[in-house]
């Protein structure tokens, strides 16, 4: 399926993109991360969390949304 990856903050800066679409047939967040690491090697040494449906996910979470967010460390307040 086509999914949209959204990059926030520092991650948008280092990948040079805020949002990109890609065809994705893997099942888990862990699979997705591997693909993203190949595409954007710079992500490998960055700290980030992944969210879909407005919730944070673990590596084992299944990808069920067509929109995935990559979130660097939070700095609110």
């Amino acid at each position: 399926m086509m999914i949209t990856i959204k990059y926030f903050g520092l991650l948008a800066e280092v990948t040079g993109c805020r949002s990109e679409k890609m065809n994705f047939s893997c099942t888990t967040i862990s699979d997705l991360k591997e693909i993203l690491f190949q595409k954007h090697k710079v992500l490998k040494n960055k700290k980030f969390k992944i969210a879909q449906h407005n919730e944070l996910n673990t590596d084992k979470t299944k990808v069920t949304s067509s929109e995935i967010a990559l979130l660097p460390p939070f700095a609110g307040g």
Binding site: F8, G9, L10, A51, A69, L71, F74, A75, G76, G77
Partner: peptide
């Protein structure tokens, strides 16, 4: 509330 905000809100600061 403030501690929860710091921990859980996806806000990024440059």
């Amino acid at each position: 509330i403030v501690e929860e905000i710091k921990l859980k809100i996806p806000v990024f600061g440059k």
